[in-house]
Design a protein around this nucleic acid. Structure first.
Lengths: 299, 299
DNA sequence: ATCGTACTGTAATTTTTCTTACATTTTGTC
DNA sequence: GACAAAATGTAAGAAAAATTACAGTACGAT
């Protein structure tokens, strides 16, 4: 009757019921934030009812969620969990050992800050508006930046129609370049070494009058006057090569902006997409819903 | 109106009244236990009345003791750091307007910290080693996480042979599931709502004996005993839905680890890939190199 | 010394958090 | 497919925590 909170949670996983497992899992992954939670806040996050939280704590041997937290206090003991402390800890280790990782963290953090600064610029607002309203949105990325375009596209597609990822599979980029420029816009993700395709595509798009947004690294010297907006994302984090990881954060912020711009009306669409996914593929926990919904195609 | 809890407490020491000073001092020395305290428990410990605690918190700018705790949670420390001023600036604006963006930034930063902590775990080292040495590496992601898998795959492919992205285009995942399990490993990126495919794939991979690494959000309750390693990435950044953006950072860190593991020998390959890209597509600044290089196919 | 101001505590009230009782749903079994 | 058992949610109520109102106290100024 005296195991650590973590141990008890882990043990419980074996026998616990569905809701209890969800709780245990979440608690395990968020152990360091638990002290700040309350039974109600937890319940909301994992989408169970409040009594379930209390009951679960009782089944694993505590009096209440609060009691569990009190035990946590002793468990964590000297381990830091305030972000500040943890950051400091990482730094210290970085200073001690020959670990270049932690300095990378600081650089990555500063990249994030830079991105959030970008998100307050007029250009940002402009791009968000365009991504929300242009009939056709294209995104593209080559080499290692292909995934970034993918991320933007996949998410935007939940919010609106007419979003497509470009690639050179067809050999020409004709999809966008011969379409009505007033109806299209393009987002290019790029970083060193810049693919010739990015530049050529930007040139042609400009020629065609299609608005182009370039998300790139600080070394890009060819974009400035070819594109309408250029978002520069820091990429040097002490890793063996540039990391464009934080472009994903930028992409997500853009998507978030588009959501805010579109407002309520996207909800129906998101619901429909989810419904369709449920129907054709299925989600964990819910079997495939094989009954096509009459109201599901709002595209 | 935007200092860290620690800062505010320290500042208050100068002007505070007797009881307040006692409180501030106690809080400062017990900062890491604060989340477990309640206004009443604190009051008892320093022998002041409960309202005094609340009042004190209000005089230093919080709504209540609970509000102070909430800020503590996000407090990333007062250390002078790289981007301190800019971060502070963003925070100030956040405090002023009801701008949820900046608090999102703090959450995103703490997610980064969590990832860098992950990168120091034994599991991480294990996964890196496996990604570096397994003959076949597969990565997969569905819905909005597809891009994450893409990012990992595209980069790993620069470093080593035998890296492929999985999808259901063929309808069966046979590529990996009927291959020699001793030669393969799998990385799954997933987040709510979890695709049925992720789980089923994990189950089958486990059955087949293929090591599986799951990168997911804190809400995932089905992975724990289905996979060999589970990396949990925080995803709630005050945006309209979960943002898995920081998984990209995790992917890049993994790639970086693989690079360090493989060492010098990857350079030749990277050079060759670059050469081939130059030959077939070309880089900005360099025209297509149309002369095939005799030494370029090391694959 | 007396007054006034600022500080602090007591007690009542409000708000939040947790629990209990009961209804409903889910799960497993025959 | 129906039943029982287990699990979960709802809603009401109990307990805890925090706030407010108000009264008393300490301390400085006059």
């Amino acid at each position: 009757m005296s195991a650590s909170v973590r141990e008890r949670l882990t043990t419980s996983l074996a026998t616990a019921s569905k809701a209890d497992r969800i709780l245990a899992n979440f608690m395990l992954s968020e152990l360091s934030n638990l002290p700040f939670e309350t039974a109600a806040s937890l319940a909301a996050k994992v989408e169970v009812s409040e009594p379930t939280v209390g009951r679960f704590c009782r089944t694993i041997g505590y009096k209440s969620f609060k009691d569990l937290k009190d035990h946590l206090k002793q468990d964590i003991g000297q381990q830091p969990w305030l972000v500040g402390d943890r950051l400091r800890e990482l730094r210290k280790q970085a200073a001690a050992g020959e670990d270049q990782l932690a300095t990378g963290l600081e650089l990555e953090i500063s990249a994030l800050v830079a991105i959030y600064e970008l998100a307050r610029t007029p250009e940002w607002a402009l791009v968000v508006k365009r991504l929300a309203t242009a009939p056709c949105v294209y995104a593209v990325g080559f080499q290692t930046e292909r995934g970034m375009a993918q991320i933007l596209v996949n998410q935007l597609q939940y919010l609106r129609d007419g979003v497509r990822m470009l690639d050179l599979a067809g050999g020409s980029f004709a999809e966008i370049l011969v379409s009505d420029p007033a109806r299209s816009c393009l987002v290019i993700f790029e970083a060193r070494r810049y693919s010739r395709l990015s530049r050529d595509l930007a040139i042609e798009a400009k020629k065609a009058g299609i608005p182009v947004t370039l998300v790139t690294d600080p070394f890009c010297d060819w974009g400035r006057d070819l594109v309408d907006e250029m978002f520069v994302v820091p990429t040097e984090f002490n890793q063996f090569w540039e990391s464009t990881a934080q472009m994903a954060s930028l992409a997500n912020l853009l998507v978030n902006g588009v959501f805010l711009e579109l407002g309520q009306k996207v909800e129906a669409r998101m619901e429909a997409v989810t419904q369709l996914y449920s129907q054709f593929t299925g989600y964990v926990g819910k079997p495939i819903n094989r009954t096509p919904q009459s109201g599901s195609n709002l595209a």
